[in-house]
Amino acid sequence: MLVVVCVKQVPDTTQVQIDPVTNTLIREGVPFIVNPYDTHAVEEALRFKDRFGCRVAAISMGPPNAEATLRKALAQGVDRAVLLSDRSFGGADTLATSKVLAAAIEKLAKEEEVGVVICGKQTIDGDTAQVGPGIATRLNFSQLTLVDRVDELDLSGKKIRVSRKLEGRHEHVEAPLPVLLTVVRELNRPRYPTVAMRLESADAQVEVWDNKVLQLDVNGIGLKGSPTWVSRIFSPERAKGEMLGDGAHDPEGAAQLLIDKMLEKDLLAL
């Protein structure tokens, strides 16, 4: 059985800064990293590999330099890495992205049965959490999002039991294979690659599939296949730190000011 992990190379959004003068994004020097949620997806796939001996493939859609992200997955121990890169894939929204990823998984499935697909819960640059469900729908897989624990993977019985982390509650769910999981950070602690694996992965083969390989209708992918588009991007208002009241002499007043602020910004879930 093959486990497929979807990973994405993202700009390290915590390093993005806003130019205080022009109020625009300073992207200079912002490095690309592996989407942090995806590292947990890779780890879970590798745990399946450790336990059941199944093979793991990592796929990523992105520009040619996204290869670095797949190399990191290889260093951690995935068996196969495929980069989906083609001009026609560019500018895709989540609908078009899931189409390409699903097509790639279907192609992998022709060689080896795919039992589990794992994605990070969302990416830190887009924060949509939509690609995972998109892929599951297109592949007609069971869909389990926000998984924070895998209780059981029964390969012979072809089912999986997991815990899902939702607002204020946890759901224990059982689903038949094949399944797509999206995972949260609490699921596991990603392994640190050994030097041997890093060196090994440095010249391991990252396959590159373009649309000649996938043969998708160009009108359904990339910018053309994206129903949504960004009409405007602007900088949010930045709240500067604000000192409230005179807490030393009037604690009640300061507390009230804080509550007023929290109400104004709708921070309270009372």
């Binding site: 390290d12 800064q17 602690r189 990603p190 640190y192």
Partner: peptide
């Protein structure tokens, strides 16, 4: 072995990605 106290994973990642132990933006 890739075996070390848990807290160090954070440090190693921060050092590799942001070249400082706390993972603060190099900017």
């Amino acid at each position: 072995e890739s075996r070390f106290p848990e807290e160090l994973l954070n440090l190693f990642e921060n050092m590799e990605q942001r070249s400082n132990p706390w993972g603060i933006a190099p900017g």
